[in-house]
Amino acid sequence: MFEIDTILRNALHEDIGLGDITTLATVAPGTAGRAQLVAKESFVLAGMDVARRVFTLLDDTVAFEKLREDGSRIERGEVLAWLKGHAAMLLQGERVALNLLQRLSGIATHTARFVAALEGTGTAVVDTRKTTPGLRVLEKYAVRVGGGRNHRTSLYDGVLIKENHVVAAGGIAPAVARARQRAPHTLRVEVETRNLQEVEEAVAAGADIIMLDNMAPAELRQAVLLIDGRALTEASGGVTLDTVREIAETGVDFISVGALTHSSPAVDISMLFQ
C-alpha cells in the first residue's frame, strides 16, 4: 500500500499542482457531489481499489461504492461505482482515477485475449519489464487480473542473462557459472538464446530457463526437442495475437509478451455527475 500511495500522491501532485483553478472558480465551497463511473465499451475491469484510493487520499470522507470487482467482464453502459462527497474532491481526483482505471483495465483486457488464445495448450503468457516508469507494480497487477503471469518484477528478483551480458561475460558458460556463484540458490537462472547453438550452450551450462528469442516456429520445435525437459522454455520476441497460438503449439512452457504492458490501449470509462 505504501508504494501505491506514493504513486498516487505523485500523480495527484502532477495534476493538481498549486490548485484546481477551474473548480475553485466555479464550484462553491462545501458543494456536495454525487457521481458514477460508467463503462463506454466492453472490457475486463482492473484497478477499482486504486481508483477508490485516489479519492480517499484527497478526502477520506468520500464514499466510493464498488458495484463490480476487478476481473469482471464489463459491458458498455454498466455503472462500475457510485461516488459521494465534496464536489471539489471528486473533480480533483477524477482524471488521475480514470487514467489509472482505464490503463489497468486496458492491460487486463489485452492480457485476457492472449490467455483465451492459449486455452488448452498448457502454455502460459507472461509479461516483461517493458512497463510505464513508476507504474510497474500496478501494470503487473493488471496482467494477473487478466489471467496472465508475471515475469521477474525488476533487476533484483531474477537472473536473466541476455545477449549483452553474454558478450560482457565472455560467453554463456562463464556467465551462468558466475551467476551461480553470486545469486542466491532460491533464484533460477535464465539465459536468452538466439539460435540452436546457443541453446546447446545454455543446456550444457545448466540454465534453469532458456529464452528462445525471435525464433520461427520450426526452430522453436527443434529447440524444445533439444532441451528435452532439462530446462523450462520461454519464447519471446514480436509475439502477437495472430501468432501466439502457433508459438504455443511448439511446446514451449511460457511466452513473454512485452505488448501486454507497453502497447495495451486504454479502455473508455467516464465519471458523470448526477
Rank of each mutant, 00 (worst) to 15 (best):
F64W: 11
R113S: 11
A88R: 14
E198Q: 15
L37F: 11
P265R: 15
A116E: 15
A177N: 03
D15Q: 06
T128R: 03
Q36V: 13
P184R: 06
T186L: 14
R178Y: 15
L160A: 07
L220N: 02
D253H: 14
G251P: 11
G170W: 13
G93Y: 01
V145P: 00
Q274K: 12
L260W: 10
D60S: 14
Y156C: 07
V176C: 11
A168M: 10
L67Q: 14
A205H: 03
L212T: 03
T61N: 14
G106V: 01
T240P: 04
A177T: 13
I172M: 07
I269C: 10
V96N: 05
S105I: 02
M1R: 01
G106A: 04
V143N: 08
I210H: 01
S264I: 07
L155Q: 03
A117V: 05
V145A: 04
R188E: 11
D20M: 01
T56Q: 14
R182Q: 15
T250N: 07
S154H: 13
R194G: 04
N10D: 14
H13C: 00
E14R: 07
T153N: 13
E192S: 08
Q181A: 15
M215T: 02
E78H: 11
Q92T: 12
D20G: 03
R178F: 10
S236G: 08
R149G: 10
L67N: 02
E69D: 14
A266R: 12
L24W: 03
A259P: 11
R230Q: 14
D127V: 03
T56G: 09
P174C: 10
T123Q: 06
L100S: 08
L155H: 08
G47A: 00
L104Q: 09
G71S: 10
R230N: 06
I209G: 02
V54G: 01
V166W: 08
L272G: 00
T56R: 11
V191W: 05
I107K: 05
I74Q: 12
A11C: 12
A223I: 06
S42M: 00
L18V: 10
A175I: 13
T111Q: 01
G85Y: 10
D242F: 01
D228W: 00
G238H: 12
G258F: 01
G258A: 05
Q274H: 14
L138V: 10
D268A: 07
D127E: 07
L91N: 03
L45E: 02
D59H: 05
E219V: 12
A259V: 06
I255W: 11
D228I: 04
T233S: 09
D242E: 15
G106Y: 06
L98A: 05
L91M: 15
P217M: 05
V267E: 11
H165L: 04
R68L: 15
T186A: 12
K140Q: 14
S264T: 05
T132C: 09
E219G: 02
G106I: 02
D228Q: 05
A175K: 08
K40I: 00
I269P: 01
E69R: 07
P133A: 01
G71Y: 02
H165T: 08
T26Q: 05
M271T: 06
V224R: 09
Y141C: 00
I172N: 09
P184K: 10
E119W: 02
L135N: 12
T109F: 01
Q92I: 01
S105L: 03
R188K: 15
D49Y: 04
E3S: 09
T131C: 03
